[in-house]
Amino acid sequence: MPPTSNPTLRQRRLGAELRKLRERAGLTATGAAELLGVNQARISMVETGRTPISADRLRSMARLYDCSDDRLVDALAAMTGRRVRGWWEEYREHLPAALVDLAELEHHAVGVRAALILHIPALLQTTDHARALFQQVAPPIRQYEVEHRLTFRMKRQSILHREKPLSYSATIHEAALRMGFGGSVVVRGQLKHLLDMSELQHVTIKVVPFGADRFPSTGQSFDYVEGPIPQLDTVQLDTHHGGCGFLDAEAQLGKYRSVLDHMETCALSPDESRTFIQTLIRDM
């Protein structure tokens, strides 16, 4: 398979996991290459995601690295082969690569747990609300860029409406619900949309009210994207410049799981959260 100069997040993650397996086996890239009968450059290209590999080759590498975790090997094997040309690929020339990688990450995920402090979750935003946000970006972006980002965001939401929808849980601070983006009509429509989405069996929305006696948060919004196995989970952080940051080290994953767990314990129940949102709408 030909190499690529711009590997996706998914391809880079596969390579990184193979590098971890090699290092745990105590092998250098040169040593692994000799045992596999390839040159060292080939190993490096695979581990940086620039050269795709087949599932059979991956299993051979896993055996060489003495990996006995069958679930991990199976999950990695499912990530092999050529890049999937999903709908998101058409946006690579128009949007930052990290945003496109996020859509691919969500497409392959089995679940997402989101923590929001000042914004409504992107996957739960209405078109009007999202447009209002993009029109207030600083520095301003051109109208055609607004429309690119808007259609992209709406297409991302398809994972909540497909035949086998993503399991989605959002813990949202009251501050995000009270933001006036777009004016009262847009805000009311957004809050009603949250109520509608909360009725879906695979969507859970919990609100952390101002009156909560504790709030163990990093102060930053993030998504915890669940892979087919915990080792392949990913944390996606919103950055101040509007892009995405991705974390996947074991210690980092543990930290953000803990933050989510604590946030959920100090939030209202799903039913209480629905009542809370209905009260906000009634008082507008």
Rank of each mutant, 00 (worst) to 15 (best):
Q252E: 14
V110P: 01
E23G: 00
D70V: 08
A114Y: 00
R24P: 08
L76M: 11
F215P: 07
H148N: 15
I281P: 04
D196G: 10
T279F: 11
H241P: 09
A29W: 01
V84Q: 03
M197W: 07
S158W: 02
G182T: 03
D283M: 08
Q157A: 09
L177S: 14
L99I: 11
R22W: 05
L99P: 11
R149A: 07
E17C: 02
L260S: 06
R83M: 07
Q231D: 10
D238M: 10
L27G: 03
A75N: 06
R214F: 06
A170C: 02
V235A: 05
R42M: 13
L102F: 14
P165G: 08
G111F: 05
T127Q: 08
A175I: 15
T151L: 01
K20F: 03
L99D: 10
A97Q: 12
S158F: 00
A267S: 14
Q11L: 04
G242K: 05
D261F: 14
L18N: 02
R59V: 12
H193S: 13
I141N: 08
T4R: 14
T234W: 03
G26I: 09
A98K: 12
L116M: 15
D271F: 11
S44F: 07
A212W: 09
G26W: 05
P139A: 07
V110I: 13
V73K: 04
V185H: 13
R178S: 09
R156C: 09
S258Q: 14
A249L: 11
E89T: 15
G180I: 04
L116C: 14
A98Y: 01
V225R: 00
Q125S: 09
L124P: 03
A103C: 06
P140T: 06
A78T: 05
M179W: 07
G111I: 03
Y168H: 10
M154P: 00
R12V: 00
E163G: 08
F222C: 10
K155M: 11
L116G: 13
Y65D: 08
H262M: 15
I277W: 00
L105M: 02
A16Q: 13
R282K: 15
A251L: 08
E93M: 12
H94R: 15
S44L: 07
T204A: 10
V100P: 01
E163L: 13
I53P: 02
L177A: 12
M61V: 07
E199C: 13
I43H: 04
T151V: 02
F134V: 01
R83A: 11
H107D: 06
V235T: 01
H193N: 10
S198E: 09
E147R: 13
V110H: 07
R57A: 12
F152Q: 00
H173K: 03
F215A: 04
H202R: 06
V186S: 02
R149F: 06
Q190E: 13
T151K: 15
S217Q: 12
V225I: 14
R85G: 00
G182H: 05
G243Q: 13
A170M: 10
A33W: 03
K206L: 12
A138L: 11
Q157K: 14
D70Y: 04
T80E: 07
C67R: 05
S258K: 11
